[in-house]
Structure formats: C-alpha cells, structure tokens
Write a protein that binds this DNA or RNA. Structure first.
Length: 429
RNA sequence: UCCAGCGUAGCUCAAUGGCAGAGCAUCCGGCUGUUAACCGGACGGUUAUAAGUUCGAGUCUUAUCGCUGGAGCCA
C-alpha cells in the first residue's frame, strides 16, 4: 500500500510503500539507515543485510543523497528513530541514481544556497517555512471569507497611472507601454463600490533599487478594501486578521515553527487589542529613546525598529503627516496636515507589515490632490468616477506576505519566505 | 547609488610576504542501531580577473567583476 510519511503512524505494524528521495544515509556495515523524504515528511528506513536479498542490499550501498527511490517495509515504532517511527525495509528500488548532490548536510553560504534555490527547497528548514507561508496565506483568506469578503483579483499589467513611473517595471504592450502593478488598491476601491467588501491577492512589483533584508522586487500582497469603513474599522479588522492568522499557525504549524527555532511564546502573546499610537505620540516615544527624527518625516528602518521593539505585540501607527503618504489618503478633519493613514509594525524589531488608511471620498478634494501631485488626470478618470457615482467613506490596507512570514518565523531575511525571491541582483533560478 | 567586509578544492574554511592545507561531499575499503555516524585510504587547485611592488605574492598596491552586511530609495 502506498502511503505518505506524515500519515505513517496510522500504519504501525503494516507493510507499506513510500515513494520519495534519499535525504541522508548512514551505514554500519551490514545495516543501513536511510532517511527518506517524500515531501510530507522524513522517515528513517532501516535495511539489514541478513533480511534482504543481495540485490536489494547492493542498491542500498550504491544509493546516494537525493536519488529518487521506492521503499517497501514494515512500520515500527522506535524511539531511536528521528521521527518516532521507522521502516524495516523489505524491498528497495532506485528510480534514478542522483549525480553527486551539491547541497550537503553541512553548512553553506547564502550565495551558494540562493544559486541552488531550486534544490535548497528540498531541505527541512525550507519545508517548514513554506508550510508556514501556506498557513499564513490560507488563514488570512479564510478570515476574510468568514467576514464576508469577496476575492477579486486585480490586473498585473496596468497603464501608467498609480504614482510616478520611476519605481515601475516597464514592458511593451503591443504599440503601447504597460507597467507591472505595484498595488491593486485603485481597482480594489472600484471593486468595493461594487461588492462592499473585497480583497485582492497577488504579486506586486517594485523597481526600487532596494538592497535590504526587508525588500523584494516581486512580493505578494493581500489587499482588503471596505466600503463604509473608517480608519478605526480598518484597525479592528487588521488586528482580528492577524490574531486569527497567528492562532491558526499555533494550531497547525507548531512543529514547523519549533524546527526553525522560533520562540513560540512570542507568538502566543499576539492577542487583541494591539496598541494604537498616533504619529505625534510615536515621535514623542522616539524622542524619549534618543531618536531625533524631525516632525513630518516618514519613519526609516531605524525608527520602525525602535517602535516595534517597544511592544510585544504588533503596534498601529496612525495619522502620519499627509505629505509623507499617498495622494488618495483622506486628511484628518481635526488637523488637515495629518492623514487618516495607518501602518502596522510587527514586534521584535520587524517593522512595517501593513499599510493603508481611509481614502478621500470627495470628488473635488481628490481632483485637487491629483493636480497637486501632477498626475495625469485623464488616466484617473475612471478612479474619479468612483467619487461621481455614489461615493462613500471607505478604507483599505495591504499586507506584505513575505514580511509577515519573516516576522512569524522569526528569521533574519525575507529571501527564505518565498520560493523564488526576486532581488536586486538575483533573477536566477 | 553610497559605506564596510569578503572572494583559496564541488561546499565550509585555514595558511607570519617564503613547500597550497583541513573537514564535509564524491570514489574505494571496514563496521549489525546510526542521529550532520564513525575509522582507514584515494581523488580534488589558473588562490575571482587584469596589471603592479618584491629575490619571492593567496597574503601588499591599483582597477574591474561578483557576493555579503548596512544605508539610502521605498503608499
């Protein structure tokens, strides 16, 4: 019977067959210990010379790391085995004898591993991170569905539009130019006027020459947008989504988190409510920590780090100065120099993972902003339409999936959180 | 783009300006409970590239390329 390793405990005492790859091999003369992985887990298969045909035993001597194999054997509980269970080999076949495998169980450098990303993904640490990525995405989508949101995907090829073109990747679109999307936000606004609560989820592209542990040229963003929602509604939604997502992780991926060395207690502390700090108070906090950022400046890596290290939960920073946020952010009625924008900073120094706010719903006000920012009005006619036909207050945010995964995994660099990271100097593999 | 560091065997790293070395991987041999197994042996080098200083350069100088870390950029 063919089984997968994650379900092996259900077959104790039975003979089963596993199709997979050789993860590692140890031998002791007339006994072989084969670590077999099949994508669902790793199990130790034990082959004893006296219990096997000579052909079978010969294959075990010959097999090398990452060869594809089919192993048949009896499932046994054994504490000496790394997974708690092991397979007493009855038959062993090599599907493909691997060439010498470049990634050994020993340590490797970052550059070498990135160059072999397609093979690196076979390692157990990468398995854990990819499974966590899966839960993060699925939990956020599940949460939004439960809240009545409709997923509506937005285009990746777009006309110039959003902001300036300096940070956009340009491509030919027959006899025109097209740009890779850097946000689904404007389309989400149209969609939420059609369906009330919507979100988009997909890759976004930024042609910024950023070379840090927190930037990718291509990253995945989940962007909810809600009609009739205020900035306060938005913060509550974000908070609930993060709490739900973390609870799902603790339920489904505790072993994965532990295997990459994550301090679980840090995640267990993620409970609502999250602190809410207005920009002015954030500046005061920074001053008290010796940071002298002038009022009106957006936070850099330093400031975000100081703020997020100050709390053991994510923290909202809201009402940033209008001039450091996008043109469509609604000004605060109590102080028009401030915008109804809000970022969520992840704790432990990880910094910004979401950004969003309440949008301008008034036609004249939006038009004024478009002109102030010297944006081409023609390109925004459809966007202005949303303020001509039944405009309502509305809010939305975007959450950067890779940054979020970096935080929940507690890892150094976001390059491990996506299967094939696109970075400033790396487009291969 | 700027600042700093690094570039030596397939990988991870040593080598005072004076013979180019180890561990792992691979191959051969040994071992019936290994846990990154272990033990013995073999294979493995245009020291990133180019020029310079020197009796002599992996080591010092200059340039170029590449990588890493950070800054900046960044709804």
């Amino acid at each position: 019977m063919d089984v997968t390793i994650d379900k092996i405990g259900e077959y104790e005492g039975q003979s089963v067959r596993i199709k997979g790859w050789l993860y590692n091999k140890r031998s002791s003369g007339k006994i072989f210990f084969l670590q077999i992985r099949d994508g669902s887990g790793i199990i130790q298969a034990v082959g004893v010379k006296s219990q096997l045909s000579p052909e079978c035993f010969e294959k075990m001597q010959k097999v090398v790391q990452e060869s594809s194999v089919i192993v048949s054997g009896r499932v046994k509980k054994d504490e000496r085995s790394p997974g708690g269970y092991e397979l007493s080999v009855e038959n062993f076949d090599i599907i493909h004898l691997s060439e010498p495998y470049p990634i050994s169980p020993k340590e490797h450098g970052v550059d070498f591993l990135m160059e072999h990303r397609h093979l690196w993904l076979r390692s157990s640490r990468q398995h854990a991170i990819m499974k966590i990525r899966n839960t993060v995405i699925r939990a956020c989508e599940d949460f939004l569905r439960q809240e009545g949101f409709l997923r509506m995907d937005t285009p990746i090829l777009t006309p110039a539009a959003c902001e300036g073109t300096t940070t956009l990747f340009e491509t030919d679109y027959f006899d025109k130019k097209a740009y890779l999307s850097q946000s689904g936000q404007l389309y989400n606004e149209a969609n939420c006027m059609a369906f009330g609560k919507v979100y988009s989820f997909g890759p976004t592209f930024r042609a910024e020459k950023s070379k840090t542990r927190r930037h990718l040229m291509e990253f995945w963003m989940l962007e909810p947008e809600i009609a009739f929602a205020t900035i306060d509604d938005l913060m509550e939604l974000e908070e609930n989504m993060i709490v739900y997502m973390v609870s799902r992780l603790l339920e489904l991926n505790k072993a994965d988190l532990k295997s990459i060395g994550r301090d679980i207690s840090k995640l267990e502390a993620i409970k609502a409510p999250f602190p809410r700090l207005c920009y002015n108070d954030a500046i005061k906090l920074l001053r008290s920590k010796g940071n002298e950022l002038p009022w009106g400046e957006d936070f850099g890596a330093d400031e975000e780090s100081i703020l997020s290290l100050n709390f053991d939960k994510p923290v909202f920073v809201h009402r940033y100065p209008a001039k450091c946020k996008a043109f469509y952010m609604k000004p605060d009625s109590e102080d028009p120099n401030l915008s109804l924008s809000v970022d969520m900073l992840a704790p432990e120094g990880y910094g910004e993972i979401t950004g969003g706010g309440q949008r301008i719903e008034d036609y004249e006000e939006l038009l004024k902003r478009i002109e102030e920012h010297k944006l081409p009005k023609d390109a925004y006619e459809w966007y202005l339409d949303l303020r001509r036909y039944g405009s309502v207050p509305h809010s939305g945010f975007g959450i950067g999936i890779e940054r979020t995964i970096t935080w929940v995994c507690g890892i150094e660099h976001l390059r491990e959180t996506i299967p094939y990271p696109r970075m400033l100097t790396r487009l291969y593999p």
